[in-house]
Design a protein around this nucleic acid. Structure first.
Lengths: 237, 237
DNA sequence: AGAAACAAGATTGTTGACAATCTATCCAAA
DNA sequence: TTTGGATAGATTGTCAACAATCTTGTTTCT
């Protein structure tokens, strides 16, 4: 009973959470240069804990540090983003394989439930509304990752990689025709996991992510031309 | 000309390097509980920079932090180790695939050179001597990872994952019959990359790592029985 | 006018001291 | 003898001040 009730007694953890939210929500824009004092004030902590929080976020690649100059929110180029999705394909592919081997029956049932509520929302509210926040999509993928029973995979994906991807608010590109195709691909993945077929589970997941990636990159390159790109372009100085 | 000559003007970076060396060399044993003051003295820095260094290493999973209790060097169970090698299979597999697509001719030539000097050393000094330090083996894998032209893969593998694996001084298990087989597998990987065959490059790399993994785990489980296990077993309290 | 050098201001890097928390030892009571 | 609590010591978490470094605006020389 060391920690009475409060979530984090520790200022550093509070600062990490606060900063992460600020970055992912866009409150701190990508590429923005950050002053320690301002951030400390924003988080309500001193500069010491704040610096530790920044080191933590640096490890998750959410910010970059330049000695004697300051920290800035990581700004991903389209190329960075594509390479990141390649890593995601590999990791979620193996996660899906492991999930097909390790998931319990209860977990597969929950996964199926995730799919059906998914399909229901499409039929009820139309196609566009499903992916607006991406939570449903995330749930499906997260459940599979957890089913892999691999703590490294879970941390790498859920904590590090997903956060980085969210910096681009990439759901937008999934709206439209991809939603239906995406659902079908999800069903194929689930089917393979339910059948306990690791090879197919991995293949289907990789196919799904590769499709999604190609779609996203194409969309982003188009957006870039029309100036619709929303990866906050901030002045560097 | 901001930084005259010295490597890292910054105490934190120096402390990170010093601590990482200490952990990987075994100077700080796995599971050992660490006092900030002692570490600060050891690195020749104050407690402030040291704490930031510890946060950095925590991000790389080399140490674990328990609030108000201290930090301890990460102690990997055999299960952790196996799961880590599953992640490695996925990441190096995709790296090998990308390398087959992206490597320049100069790089493939260098890779071949790495293989030939490899084979020479086996013929000259016998089988056992090749893998004693594992540098040759590392070179081969590192060159492929760099050839993937993917900065996330490179950082994840070369900076984070390899360091974690080295905590177990796992080379020992590669001595003996595996050395020859390992060389043959390397040649198969190289051949696929040279042929610019991504599918086969990935398949061969994954096969290689899976073989190596099964061999290592078997060896470790055997060592555990005979008390030869060398993952420093330190008292927790 | 343009470029280089200098100085003032602001920001980062570091240190030491202070407060909050945990751990281990000792003592008393059942 | 064992169990429980209380106290002292050590350790972690935090803060505020100081030194080192960078940035910016001004000045001066060509």
């Amino acid at each position: 009973m060391s920690h009475p009730l409060r979530r984090s007694h520790v200022h550093v953890d509070a600062a990490v959470e606060r900063l992460e939210r600020a970055i992912l929500s866009g409150e701190l824009r990508a590429g923005a240069r950050l002053s320690e004092q301002a951030l400390a004030k924003m988080c309500g902590v001193g500069r010491g804990p704040l610096r530790e929080a920044v080191r933590t976020l640096e490890g998750r690649r959410l910010v970059e540090r330049v000695p004697f100059s300051g920290v800035r929110v990581t700004q991903l180029s389209i190329d960075d983003f594509q390479q990141l999705l390649v890593v995601r394909e590999a990791l979620e592919g193996i996660a899906s394989r492991q999930a097909a081997e390790c998931m319990t029956l209860a977990e597969t049932r929950e996964l199926r439930q995730c799919l059906t509520t998914f399909a229901k929302r499409i039929k009820k509210d139309g196609i566009g509304s499903v992916y607006v926040d991406g939570t449903q999509d995330n749930d499906f993928h997260v459940q599979i990752v957890r089913g892999s029973r691999n703590k490294w995979l879970e941390q790498l994906l859920c904590r590090d990689l997903y956060a980085l991807l969210r910096m681009y608010r990439y759901q937008s590109a999934t709206i439209g025709g991809r939603a239906v195709q995406s659902l079908q691909e999800h069903e194929a993945i689930f089917s393979a996991i339910e059948k306990r077929d690791p090879d197919e589970a991995e293949r289907m997941m990789r196919l799904h992510i590769a499709h999604s990636r190609d779609n996203l990159i194409a969309q982003m390159k188009k957006d870039l031309g029309t100036g619709k790109g929303n990866a906050g372009r901030a002045r560097t100085r």
